[in-house]
Amino acid sequence: MTRSQADTDPVYSAPFHFQPGQRSDVLVVCDHASRALPPEFGDLGLSPGQRRDHIAWDPGAARVAQALATALGCPAFHGGSSRLVVDLNRHPDSAHLVLPESGGHPVPGNLRVSPEERERRLQRYFHPYHDALDAYLDRLDAAGTRPTLLSVHSFTPEMLGMLRPWPIGLMWKEHRDWVPRLLSWFAQRGVEIGDNQPYDGHDTLGFTLEYHGLQRGLPHVLFEIRQDQLLLDEQQERWGRDLAQAILETGVIGPPTSA
């Protein structure tokens, strides 16, 4: 078995990465896929352990998203830098876009971010990701295709001293007839799934699905997987395949069409 989250810091290469796929009726997005820090930020004053922690990314989510998109045969967008540079799933005006402190840890490199620096980070690391998503969805819309958006995140087993019992949570804001079927699919397999847990999608679904999904009226769902389920590469890939099976068997999307 291969353990995930290697000690070596990943090398930053781009503000986002696009994984191609044949299907256009479904799209996977993974905002917090990377903990890479562009060279200009150094280590942001954080220890190696802090840079591997949830404050920097969603551990395991990238490989789950990759495996999910591969199993469905669809494209995926992956964020390319750590959320400590700029959080791709926050509104550009949000006070939480660039955090001077996260999870009880000060982030020295973010303690004195001027409005000019904030705007520079938006232009260099935030807007390229969302502009690319916008352009891709615009092209599909022009062709008469309205894809289902599948967002992948991971969450900590405990928060503020409270255990979070769900191995997986399903977050949504606009009800679709397949939501109960998805919940039932996991429950029938003995998996305790959170319905709008560990976060309530009615209250906060996150910028990516709010902006690209709800504003366009696209069907959407956000999967949150508990991080102790994603410690090994094999676990991450299995979750990706299981999500794809659930999505196909519950009619979230139709079966793939032959070429």
Rank of each mutant, 00 (worst) to 15 (best):
Met1Gly: 15
Thr2Lys: 10
Ser4Pro: 03
Ser4Phe: 11
Asp7Leu: 11
Thr8Asn: 07
Val11Leu: 06
Pro15Gly: 11
Leu27Tyr: 03
Val29Met: 13
Ala33Ser: 14
Ala36Ser: 15
Pro39Ile: 08
Phe41Gln: 05
Leu44Ser: 13
Arg51Asp: 11
Asp58Pro: 03
Ala62Gly: 12
Ala62Asp: 13
Arg63Pro: 01
Val64Thr: 07
Gln66Ser: 12
Cys74Phe: 02
Gly79Ser: 10
Ser82Phe: 09
Arg83Cys: 08
Arg83Gln: 10
Gly103Gln: 05
Asn110Cys: 08
Arg112Thr: 11
Ser114Pro: 11
Glu119Phe: 07
Arg120Tyr: 10
Leu122Ser: 08
Arg124Leu: 13
His127Val: 07
Pro128Gly: 04
His130Phe: 09
Ala135Tyr: 01
Asp138Trp: 08
Leu140Pro: 07
Asp141Gly: 15
Asp141Cys: 14
Ala142Met: 14
Val152Leu: 14
Thr156Glu: 02
Met162Asp: 10
Pro165Val: 00
Trp166Thr: 06
Ile168Thr: 10
Lys173Pro: 00
Lys173Phe: 00
Glu174Met: 02
Arg176Tyr: 11
Glu192Phe: 01
Gly194Lys: 03
Asp195Gln: 04
Asn196Asp: 10
Tyr199Leu: 13
Gly201Asp: 05
His202Thr: 11
Gly206Met: 01
Thr208Trp: 01
Arg216Glu: 05
Glu234Met: 04
Arg241Ala: 15
Asp242Pro: 00
Ala246His: 09
Ile247Cys: 05
Ile253Ala: 03
Thr257Ala: 14
Thr257Asn: 05
